[in-house]
Design a protein around this nucleic acid. Structure first.
Lengths: 407, 407
DNA sequence: AGTATATGTTCCGCGTTTAGACAAATTCCG
DNA sequence: CGGAATTTGTCTAAACGCGGAACATATACT
């Protein structure tokens, strides 16, 4: 039961019904392709005539195309199959992280084209812009057969205002209130969308078209890495909040008297489960220390730690198990406050999932109020799926499929 | 940007545009009454003809009525004013709490009729049903001039599935998986809606028509009482979650090593800020004790404590200040995770607001990530406004004004 | 009394869904 | 091999609702 905002509503115009049904048809084709007009009409519960008209409109805009005539199911005329037109259209996804920046080229459906490219991140916006422009041009040159680029999606670990195209605060990059979009747009000559990485990951899962997993309209993506990024999907929409800062579960405390966090507060979830926290635990460094990593351990990553744990290093296993427990306790806060249908987890820690899953699960159960809360589905998103890059791509590709604003 | 759920969508039919515009018109009349057809057309940005037709449809259903001809603004024909028709229609709100049950009669706009009635709550469903039926019949009899009763809204401190009409778990009442709606419907002969009290409070604020406060489409209601109940509104809709348990911020921890909470876990926000926690702090009782209140202190309430604090009792003030600080720290978790435009606070603690506001605010600022987060608007809802009862009423009155499901 | 202005109603045009008929394509079956 | 049955896709007429403009009504100003 949604309330109509009497200060910001949208009246239904003559074309509104058409617009709604057009988007529904487009989404159904996306979800079920290949599909015939007749099947589409059956799914939509409308006459074939209507479906036909909607399809011809989508064809005219070349959002979809007619493929080969399909095989007949029984007897009768064979259907002509419809597909989302991802030919000759591509999207660039960019993932800016503290150390490196990654680039991925995909088609409109998110199918990966070529390999993931990366280079060292410069924290100077001008230099980074130039680097990115060169790399993107090069990537597009390598795949000239894919046609025009629809846009570039950029994902940043920090608070972002997508409407203004500004990075409000990205601590690991040292950016504060920086206009990232306009310089990039100017340099690329292609529309640029920017977004917070946690929200983008949630968006990517929402718009994913893996047949085995039905995207949930109520889910949370938790990315455990240098920090903890969280994206929340409510009613099929990424939750933004009043100032675009919703989803900062990383700074909800486990214990307000806990270790100092990079945000200035103490005992944040992030200060218990970030990669740095896990490593510090292993090396026995004080968690409150801002730079606990010695020179000798600087190149030692969580992946290395996990490898040692798997190899039988008891201290490494203990460190990871500790992280697992805190991860589960924090997830309980998410379950209690949001009650999502599903939680996705990404980040380096996922490579240890088979080791830690029982611990995470039992910690989750320990603090959730109901049995179904404790049984909330948890899905691992491995690094090979590049959730952040897929999210960046979704920033560009998804709007064409979004529901129209109505009422 | 909302995704259309390919498994649960609604195709636009021939009457969909009408339905949308009808609800918009109804909401605008509700928000701006008294209002003329011409003004309505201007607000909706449609021709007067369309507005006229929508109005005549609403008139035919007697959802609205034409009042006296208004005063002319300048020259020209005088407008006929339109009003929501709350004549001859009333709603009963019921607030079931552990100790007492409250009843309120209002008209469709939520205007209070008569006084709030209350009686002792029986935890036996059959007895409670009989008690309620008698009281409601009596109340309706006292106000026979208000006409037919549209329905009864019932609010319960616990998890509720409104669709099934069941109370999943209400610890203070000792109910677990109880069908509350059907016996009540049978006894009253009127439609009954049940809901969790925190969610209902949030709903009440969302649908409130106080001219000074524009209801926010992104808000949180925090009710601090025996427990901590929270209702969350996202995009003009109360967040339910997968199992109707969203919003349990009361059991998000401040410190996982903190005092034991009634839920079984430790260090929940609730165990720091509930009335019991404040009282225990004052009496120096162990917070972990399940029954810390002595016989002599059994009748001593938080209101009494606040009175002592105002009278200069340093120990009482310290106890309340402590609660205030923890309240602010917990609110920070809500701000960080949801970034609402506004937080409403209800419960006994609000009577001490002038004492504690600075402490709450500074604690909030201490743990919020951004300056605007720390400056999140906090509004007190005093007990005299009966937020829970208004929420119960909104359960019945609001659906008629809700946005139609589309796409 | 005449003019200007605002409100509310009515009528027609046009786009969209709805319902049904029809042609085309293909398999089944005698 | 040919007709019947079935399925797909297109087309047409009807119903419905917005879009725009004209018209009647009501009031104030001059």
């Amino acid at each position: 039961m949604r309330k109509i905002n009497p200060h910001d509503f949208k009246v239904a115009r003559r074309g509104t019904s058409r617009e709604i049904n057009r988007q529904i048809a487009l989404n159904l084709i996306r979800a079920h392709q290949p599909i015939s007009r007749a099947d589409l009409a059956r799914l939509m519960n409308v006459r074939r005539g209507v479906a036909s008209l909607l399809v011809s409109e989508l064809l005219a805009e070349s959002l979809i195309f007619e493929g080969a005539v399909g095989e007949a199911v029984g007897r009768g005329r064979r259907p002509t199959f419809l597909y989302i037109d991802s030919r000759q259209r591509c999207v660039v996804g960019v993932d800016i992280r503290a150390s490196r920046t990654y680039i991925l080229l995909t088609d409109l459906m998110g199918k990966q084209l070529g390999v993931v490219n990366s280079f060292q991140t410069s924290k100077d916006i001008d230099v980074l812009t130039k680097d990115l422009a060169r790399r993107i041009k090069q990537t597009l040159g390598d795949f000239s057969e894919v046609g025009a680029c629809e846009g570039v999606g950029v994902v940043v670990p920090g608070m972002v205002d997508p409407a203004l195209g500004r990075v409000l605060h990205a601590p690991t990059l040292g950016w504060r209130d920086v206009n990232l979009r306009d310089p990039l747009t100017a340099a690329f000559g292609i529309p640029v969308h920017i977004e917070n990485s946690g929200k983008a990951c949630a968006l990517a899962q929402l718009w994913a078209t893996r047949s085995d997993v039905v995207a949930s309209a109520n889910s949370v993506f938790v990315s455990v890495s240098d920090g903890v990024g969280v994206g929340v999907v409510v009613n099929g929409e990424v939750m933004r909040g009043r100032h675009n800062t919703a989803g900062e579960f990383g700074h909800v405390p486990l214990s307000i008297d806990g270790p100092r966090c990079s945000c200035g507060a103490t005992g944040c979830w992030e200060s218990y489960v970030s990669n740095l926290a896990t490593l510090s635990r292993y090396f026995g460094t004080d968690l409150s220390e801002p730079k606990p990593r010695e020179a000798e351990t600087a190149s030692f990553t969580v992946e290395d730690l996990i490898a040692r744990a798997r190899a039988g290093d008891a201290k490494a296993l203990a460190a990871i198990n500790s992280t697992a427990r805190y991860l589960g306790l924090g997830l309980a806060s998410i379950v209690n406050s949001l009650d999502p249908a599903r939680i996705y987890i990404g980040g380096e820690i996922t490579t240890a999932w088979s080791l830690i899953e029982p611990i995470v699960r039992s910690a989750l159960r320990e603090r959730t109020l109901t049995d179904f809360g404790g049984a909330t589905e948890i899905l691992i998103v491995p690094a090979e799926e590049h959730p952040r890059l897929r999210g960046a791509v979704a920033l560009v590709a998804a709007p064409a499929f979004a529901a129209p604003m109505v009422a």
